[in-house]
């Protein structure tokens, strides 16, 4: 059986909120290392990979692998019933047909309990190869979100070019063109505002801004976002969570003619 207790419902609320517009029905794969989720959007252009490590929960108990097939719209409806600070406990039997969610309010004596019917989702699982990326950019997640939103006003695609001078986000469209160039930057007082660019070789790739703007819904989960690029491979956009948990998005590049 599964029993996973989260100190704050807020974490799961924000994770589900960040991915519910990208994927609809997902398997939450529970095992002794934690709760994982991998799903692609309908066009198989973007993939979300979530890992909530068992250390994120206390207590965490999962004595055999359980796949919880859940519709994210249903999960969103139930998570709306939890206050951000509520203690959230997920429970499921082995081979379950429902997942049980309990919300306990910290101060007042209120306990809410919901069951969500599970679905049989036979989702193809993709192998994501370990990659030594040519360029890794760590930057404020809010800044990346602003760049994507700003450039999406001009074009549906953005080229991301990393050289030793820095990283340049550029686009051009019907009304004109625009670009944002960042260089490594250290803010001593506020390290969360740092921009760090690690480059082993120059990289230039083009991506759909619609998807990047969608990924940026996760910005509230982490002050920093990590972009990993190599030529001819999908972009990795990673929001690190506590206890080595993470929310990762992969996006296939646009291929020039």
């Amino acid at each position: 059986m599964l029993e996973a207790r989260l100190e704050q419902a807020n974490l799961l609320k924000k994770v589900v909120d960040a991915i519910k517009d990208l994927v609809q029905d997902c398997n939450f794969d529970c095992n002794d290392s934690g709760i994982a989720l991998q799903a692609m959007d309908n066009s198989h252009v973007a993939l979300v990979s979530m890992m909530l490590k068992s250390e994120s929960f206390s207590p965490f108990r999962c004595d055999r692998n359980i796949a919880l097939g859940i519709n994210l719209t249903s999960l969103t409806k139930v998570l709306r019933c939890a206050a951000n600070e509520d203690i959230l406990t997920l429970k499921a039997e082995d081979a379950p047909d429902v997942v049980n969610l309990v919300f306990e309010s910290a101060e007042s004596d209120r306990l809410s309990e919901y069951d969500i019917k599970l679905m049989d989702i036979d989702q193809e699982h993709l192998g994501i190869p370990e990659t030594e990326y040519a360029a890794t950019i760590s930057m404020p997640s809010a800044e990346f979100q602003k760049i994507c939103r700003d450039l999406m006003a001009l074009s549906e695609s953005v080229s991301i070019e990393c050289t030793k001078e820095g990283v340049k986000f550029a686009c051009s469209g019907d009304i004109g063109s625009g670009s944002v160039t960042l260089r490594s930057h250290t803010n001593v007082e506020k390290p969360q505002l740092n921009v760090e660019i690690d480059l082993s070789e120059p990289v230039a790739l083009t991506f759909s801004l619609k998807y990047l703007v969608n990924f940026c819904k996760a910005s509230g989960l982490s002050e920093q976002v990590r972009l990993c690029l190599s030529n001819e491979v999908p972009l990795l956009v990673e929001y690190a969570l506590s206890n080595n948990s993470y929310l990762r998005f992969y996006l296939a590049p646009k291929i020039g003619d």
Binding site: E124, H125, T206, P234, D257
Partner: peptide, 14 residues
């Protein structure tokens, strides 16, 4: 113009 790649080009089914 550029056309959108697909993840199956890069990630194999497990």
């Amino acid at each position: 113009s550029t056309n959108q790649g697909n993840l199956h080009t890069f990630f194999s089914k497990q």
